[in-house]
Amino acid sequence: MFTAVTIAVLVAMALALFRAYAGPTLYDRILAVNVFGTKTVLLIAIVGFLMGRPEFLDIAMVYALMNFITVIGILRFFEYSSPGKSANSETVKD
């Protein structure tokens, strides 16, 4: 049963990876990265149970945390990388 859930999470990760690659807007990519990070947390948790060593959970916690901070970071630097302009126009020069 853990196997089935592992495969489900892996499939979800692959689909999210494709969305992160395909875009088309940067926000789609951020969303995909966020989903991917959550799925990685799940994968680590499930694989721990699958292999009978559920002590990996510390690492899953770091993932959850870093995933959040990374998404905030991308938003912060993307939104304000071109002050005064619409954030999704190309920043030729500040």
């Binding site: 489900a8 689909l15 999210a16």
Partner: peptide, 17 residues
């Protein structure tokens, strides 16, 4: 719970795609 969660995972990602 695990099976429903797994299905939701896949359906959400299909929606994302």
């Amino acid at each position: 719970l695990l099976v429903i969660g797994g299905l939701l995972c896949i359906s959400g990602s299909v929606g994302l795609l």
